[in-house]
Design a binder for these strands. Structure first.
Length: 827
DNA sequence: GCAGCAAGGTTACC
DNA sequence: ACGGGTAACCTTGCTGC
């Protein structure tokens, strides 16, 4: 029979993963492209299994046979199906670094693994079961399946229409049952995905409440291949990208048809998990049509989660907002992650303006603007997706998880998945994910001591040098072997760390977590070098992915939801990092330098009379004395630096300083200038004041700037947008115990009929009031409310606090200056 | 009624 | 439920006089 079947060999890029059950088997469906860009779907059988770890004792063969027999007899029956054990295999495995006797249990359906596991745990002699809680696709890849976005040579046979209950019938291309696969060398197939950006505009914000007014779709392999706005509202024939339809229903169907015609690999939206896609589905349902975007004609599937995840079969739906939020936000300058700001920062492109208050009285020109606005959103989304493609691609290949998950997982998940996919190199069985009660216990343990921060002496300094440790916490974990599997209750052959209340021990034998992390750090170095030799988006993304993984490893071990959570390891990492930085500070002092500041992994000190060569030689000497892979590097030489006092007390403020290099590059940390909850007026003034002082080395020009701004404020010359204060709403309005100005502003917003959601940035200003009011919140007004800004407030609560401590460095009291009585105090 | 401090709250640094 | 601790500094809210 078999030789009559069509066998074929082709090169293949796996892109999207899903699974299906057929009879008593789990199958993985992998959508992808051939080398020449044709769509194919490869299906691969997954032999569902998990592990049983036997108690640690001398086992007689007969006893084990009995246990295996008991396991093999277990059956599970639920509403959906009946499952059974297919076979068991004995293997020598490692669990948390220790050799263990383990039974691999093969079952008919991975989705029932936890149920089997529960029953098996009742058998005596069994210590625990593991890997029953790993998702089927992750487990398939862990067990040697086809890895996402790697290059393969596949030998397979065409799935005929009558096979597998007819799954190939709905497809317009071939499905192949995988017979043999071979992973090809690095990037033999140059793969550029076809991306489409999409965006909808609706009449109401609440899901499905209103109508979808228009849908835009933009992109292709090249720009402009698809450039469309679908609408059923007033159409202007002059806008050739607009297609008009008779109803919402027809518009949605035309959109689906266009997506099918374009046949993209990636459909990208911005906040589309939370808005565009579920809205589309709700409106399709309202119109009694199917949103059949999937390659198998299926509708998007919304997995439950904090925010739903919209999965489309065969096409990777990427919500760029989520990817940026979880992976990049901490490295971005943008104060919000709105499409406008993010596109501004990453692409130097902006959204178009549209006045939403026109929505109720739209005229022809308004519609024209609205269509154009809607199209621009899709263009930005497409351009962002193009820009971030190298990062998604590298993350997916390095972590070995499908694109869909890669663009949604948190950093802790990324670290965990990287570990899971590398365990086989250590013959390790994976640890389980903590249950609810375990998470509760972990959270209840409370905080442990963190980083050391040096108390700076306020002042303006010349020639400041900054050293910092490269990936400090990660290099501490690696150098001291700190992890769950190396954490030891015994003292023999161990290394000890003194924590606040206890002494903890770690084995000297290298554990898999520090070893995997060491590999990550090595690769980061290697690819950083590769990037420097060959600067392109791919080498940059590769180097960056390893950097992010290395930086997240410490947080992972201290995260209560982690499989490899180890509070002792996390606390020890912080303790040893503290010890290390304190020792280094002492050495720098002994080297004849004055240390000015230090936070966690960096040290700032004065160059004194040493030249740069001597400083670098000193750095080299320090490095030779550091343990393991720990490394200190030169961050930069600075021409000047300023540290100020706290507003309460005379001490130097931590986490607030500003530096300038010889080239005039300014680095500002912690000051109000970089805080978004201060008004623009105060931030800009502070920024200019810092710049003037750092550039000129004295306060003269800074004082002029301050006086001028205060004068403008008093003469009411300040534009409203400069005095707006923006604060994020962190929880629902009614949960606030203390009613702060931004809560009042949010209440007012709600009263105006605006949607108020957690996470929103609330804008307001402090206005003059007729009667004297004591509390700030009593003077709060929304930007669209009439009223004049409160001069007293902006002077005393915004401008002065922003510059007072900076000017104080020169022994000048700013209040006296502005009152005209200039007076220098004796120091 | 008000000073002084604690607590709540947000956003920064690394 | 989806990394950590350290720190500044705002406003409100309470206590005690």
């Amino acid at each position: 029979m078999r030789d009559r079947k069509m066998e074929k060999e082709f090169e293949f890029i796996p892109i999207d993963y899903s699974d299906f059950d057929f009879k008593e088997e789990n199958w993985i469906k992998i959508h992808g492209r051939t080398k020449d860009g044709k769509r194919v779907c490869v299906i691969d059988k997954y032999e569902a299994n998990f592990w049983v770890i036997l108690e640690n004792k001398d086992w007689k063969e007969k006893e084990i046979e009995e246990i295996r027999k008991k396991i093999e007899e277990i059956e599970i029956e639920n509403n959906v199906r009946k499952s059974r054990v297919l076979k068991t295999e004995m293997e020598k495995k490692n669990f948390l670094g220790k050799e263990r006797k383990a039974i691999r249990v093969f079952i008919t359906n991975q989705k029932d693994a936890l149920d089997f596991s529960d029953k098996i745990k009742e058998i005596s002699g069994i210590e625990k079961t593991r890997e029953a809680d790993i998702s089927i696709i992750t487990k398939y890849i862990m067990d040697g399946g086809v890895k996402p976005l790697k290059n393969y040579k596949i030998e397979g046979e065409i799935v005929e229409k009558e096979e597998f209950g007819g799954i190939s019938e709905v497809y317009e291309f071939n499905l192949y049952k995988l017979n043999k696969k071979e992973e090809l060398a690095k990037e033999e197939i140059k793969f550029e995905p076809k991306i489409l950006g999409f965006d909808i505009e609706a009449s109401e914000f609440e899901l499905g409440k209103g109508e979808i007014l228009m849908i835009s779709l933009y992109g292709g392999k090249k720009e402009n291949e698809c450039k469309k706005v679908f609408t059923w509202k007033k159409c202007d024939k002059k806008q050739d990208f607009v297609s008009c339809f008779k109803s919402e229903e027809e518009m949605i169907e035309a959109f689906i048809k266009e997506v099918k015609k374009q046949d993209p690999d990636i459909l990208a939206g911005y906040f589309s998990d939370g808005f565009d896609l579920p809205y589309l589905k709700a409106c399709a349902q309202k119109n009694k049509i199917k949103l059949s975007l999937g390659l198998d004609e299926s509708q998007p599937d919304f997995k439950r989660g904090r925010i739903s995840q919209g999965k489309i079969e065969g096409i990777v739906h990427v919500d760029l907002f989520r990817f940026i939020e979880t992976v990049f936000s901490q490295y971005m300058q943008s104060e919000t992650l709105s499409l406008n700001e993010v596109a501004g920062e990453l692409l130097n492109e902006r959204k178009e303006d549209f006045d939403f208050s026109r929505l109720k009285k739209m005229e022809e020109d308004d519609w024209k603007n609205f269509f154009s606005y809607n199209l621009q959103d899709s263009i930005l989304t497409y351009n962002l997706a193009k820009k971030l493609w190298p990062d998604m691609y590298e993350f997916s290949r390095i972590i070995q998880e499908p694109l869909f998950d890669i663009t949604r997982d948190s950093m802790s998940m990324h670290v965990e998945n990287y570990l899971l996919h590398n365990l086989k190199n250590f013959n390790e069985i994976a640890e389980k994910r903590p249950h609810h009660d375990e998470i509760g216990k972990r959270k209840a343990l409370g905080k442990y001591e963190g980083a050391f921060v040096f108390q700076p002496k306020p002042g303006l300094y010349e020639n400041v040098i900054m050293f910092d440790f490269t990936s400090m916490y990660s290099s501490v974990i690696v150098s001291y072997n700190l992890s769950l599997s190396t954490y030891s209750g015994e003292k023999r052959g161990t290394f000890s760390v003194d924590l606040e209340k206890e002494k903890v021990y770690f084995s000297k034998e290298k554990g898999f977590f520090p070893l995997i992390l060491e590999e990550i750090i090595k690769k980061r170095k290697q690819y950083k070098k590769e990037y420097k030799n060959d600067e392109n988006p791919i080498t940059k993304a590769r180097s960056n992915a390893y950097k992010l993984l290395a930086n997240a490893a410490y947080g992972y071990q201290g995260f209560f939801g982690a499989r490899y959570y180890c509070r002792e390891a996390a606390a020890s990492t912080a303790a040893l990092a503290r010890k290390s930085i304190l020792e280094t500070i002492e050495k720098i002092k002994k080297g004849g330098f004055e240390v000015i500041y230090s936070d966690t992994d960096s040290i700032a000190f004065l160059q004194e009379k040493k030249n740069r060569k001597e400083v670098l030689e000193f750095l080299e000497k320090l490095n030779k004395e550091l343990p393991g892979i720990m490394e200190l590097e030169l961050e930069d030489f600075y021409k000047r630096g300023i540290w100020v006092t706290k507003r309460s007390g005379e001490f130097g403020a931590k986490k607030k300083y500003a530096l300038i290099t010889e080239n005039g590059k300014i680095k500002i940390r912690g000051f109000e200038t970089v805080r978004r909850d201060w008004c623009q007026l105060a931030r800009e003034l502070q920024n200019k004041v810092l710049e003037a002082i750092l550039k000129e080395g004295n306060e003269k020009r800074a004082l002029e700037l301050i006086k001028k701004t205060i004068q403008n404020l008093k003469e009411r010359k300040i534009d409203k947008k400069e005095i707006l204060i923006r604060t994020q709403l962190k929880k629902p309005i009614n949960e606030y115990l203390s009613i702060t100005p931004h809560v009042i502003a949010a209440q007012k917003l709600q009263a105006q009929g605006m949607p108020v959601d957690v996470g929103m940035l609330i804008e307001y200003f402090i206005a003059e009031t007729r009667e004297k009011k004591a509390l700030v919140r009593e003077k709060v007004k929304l930007p669209n409310e009439k009223g004049e800004y409160n001069i007293d407030y902006y002077l005393n609560n915004q401008l002065l606090p922003a510059v007072e401590n900076i000017i104080e460095v020169f022994n000048i009291n700013i209040k006296e200056i502005i009152e005209g009585t200039r007076q220098k105090k004796l120091f």
